[in-house]
Design a protein around this nucleic acid. Structure first.
Lengths: 338, 338
DNA sequence: ATCCGTCATCGAACCGGTTCGATGGTGGAT
DNA sequence: ATCCACCATCGAACCGGTTCGATGACGGAT
């Protein structure tokens, strides 16, 4: 069931079938009709590998994701979903590549095998060897997140520093004067994970600017760690009255710790941060937070990647999103202690 | 940088390079050495499309996932991750295809374009046109979940009916005599989603067998619905003392409703079901539940798919897993009402 | 009647690998 | 010295598309 068979049954040459399908040269209406009839009858679809070989492009995008062992956060899941949807809207397929851990063969296959027309990279570190690798392979790519010195690379990101700053100002306006940042895990910070580091920097600068006492902790990405972490905070710094967090996975544990300590949100304690919208709304009470626009970011990444593929020589572009804080009900004025 | 250039620089023919790389015919050690040197120097990697065209296989598996608009549950996320990891372990890539909604072009591309060597299908309905479509395309495939009459198809699944039955017996043993099943959404049930229907059937049979009063409700997949749903249960059937659920997304809402009603788990109310392990452990208190072995299921699906690809004529195989209930602390003896 | 332009179609080359049958060189057995 | 087997390598065909230059038929202008 290849193009030759279609050509034979329609009584034309292979090239005519090709032109009839692509429309790149005129073909008489009668011939097109005949070819389409044969194709419909035989259920023919061109072989994607052969087409990719001949055209020099695969109509496929690569998406490099963290390995499954480190499980995806809600925000990351949002990226994946929106990238896949945005690609599908352009009739492109998405090839998944887990990178990190012991899966570097997969990344290498993607990069050097000409399997994809471009790559979207997520979970970027400040110094990320994969960015370097893709640059030298001269394969178009866009990162969700950005390295410290992006140079000529294309990226989209959320401005974690600005968002955390905004959260801090919000708390300062409410009268809080000792606040804590519950960051992602110490391993991620040590590895140079951008959002964690930029959040920390933004937090320290903003608290200093407003004259607040700043506390920061790292917390592993699970509920048990969140609980332990919050109890540690209560022990070490009992006068902290508000927390800012970017750690979604720890939230259920934090919530349990608040409950166990008899603290009611927002009456006794305020909680905010940068969180996937769904989680913010599932929280009790719903979290006042900067919602990460994961869907928009994924779509943007695909758009930029396609622009880059279409014009390899174009000047690098990027987008730094800074969504507003959604006021819900997890923050309130600081209660004076008696 | 194609195989011809390597051959030229190494002073051998293209076929010799190919044999040196694949090892399918002996090549002298000296020649292999020379070829490898050139390859290392130029950083050559064979073109995946050309290889796929020549070999007739793509070294890629297709994974058909629900569209992003319907967001993935934790269990589904576990499937995706484990399929990708298992495939990577075999040096295979995974092509993602969102199906359902308006993305059927993507599914058709996967099926007819010879882009993949086989397909893994998740979120199967009892009557699923995609299974039919794949069968007639004679493309190897394995489903996670199974249609009502699997015929000659290969599948892996969790025995929801048996697991729910086990949960009911567990509650009956603890003395509960009026229990409710909190199912997935009414839309999914209406669409013929297997786990929802098999759970309902198992629940009704098991409660009948033990002489319990059975109540069932459908609940949309989010926390707000869970809350509303549980309050409805309390209103309609105030004497219900235990719930069984397969609806992960509704759990936070159920938890909030329990709290709001002043019910303590497990003292005043018992809760169990079939839930992703991580969620069961994040719950407060940790849920006694049958943990869906998502990772094992994903790995098994890949193994079966590879077996099918290797031997197209083999008899269909399947696996129906029935993991044990993990006793945690969300179920307890029914308290007699006074 | 001749020439030219246009339109539809064809044949061949090419993309970059794999694989099969053929070939030349080497060494051991007779 | 001759024959044979074997080992290493080569050349050509093939996978299934796309694309370019060439060709033939046809109609209008001269």
């Amino acid at each position: 069931m290849n193009i030759g068979e279609i050509a034979q049954r329609a009584g034309v040459s292979r090239s005519t079938v090709s032109y009839a399908l692509s429309g790149k040269r005129p073909v008489s209406a009668a011939t097109v009709q005949r070819i389409n009839d044969v194709i419909a009858e035989l259920g023919y679809r061109p072989n994607a590998s052969a087409r990719a070989l001949a055209e020099g492009r695969t109509r496929t995008l690569g998406l490099v994701v963290p390995p499954a062992s480190r499980r995806l956060t809600d925000v990351q899941l949002g990226f994946v979903g929106s990238v896949v949807d945005a690609a599908a809207a352009h009739d492109l397929d998405v090839l998944l590549s887990p990178s990190g851990g012991d899966h570097d063969r997969s990344f290498e296959r993607i990069v050097t095998g000409r399997r994809v027309d471009g790559v979207i990279l997520m979970e970027i570190l400040l110094e990320d060897p994969r960015v370097e690798r893709l640059s030298q392979a001269s394969l178009p790519f866009v990162t969700i997140g950005h390295v410290e010195h992006p140079g000529a690379s294309w990226w989209v990101d959320v401005d974690y520093g600005a968002l955390i700053t905004r959260c801090v100002h919000h708390l300062a306006d409410l009268g809080h004067d000792e606040v804590v940042l519950i960051n992602r895990s110490a391993e991620l910070v040590a590895a140079g994970y951008g959002p964690a580091l930029r959040s920390a920097t933004g937090f320290l600068e903003a608290t200093a600017a407003r004259g607040l006492t700043a506390r920061t902790v790292c917390c592993a990405d699970d509920a048990a760690a969140g609980l332990a972490c919050f109890e540690e905070i209560r022990t070490q710094w009992p006068s902290v009255t508000a927390a800012v967090t970017i750690n979604e996975a720890a939230l259920p544990g934090v919530q349990r710790a608040l409950h166990r300590a008899g603290l009611e949100v927002p009456r006794d304690f305020s909680l905010t941060g940068v969180i996937a919208e769904r989680l913010a709304e599932d929280f009790h009470p719903p979290l006042t937070a900067a919602d990460v626009p994961a869907v928009e970011l994924g779509r943007l990444a695909v758009d930029l990647l396609l622009a880059q593929i279409a014009d390899a020589g174009a000047a690098p572009r990027h987008a730094l999103l800074e969504p507003p804080i959604s006021l819900r009900s997890s923050t309130g004025a600081r209660r004076r202690r008696d």
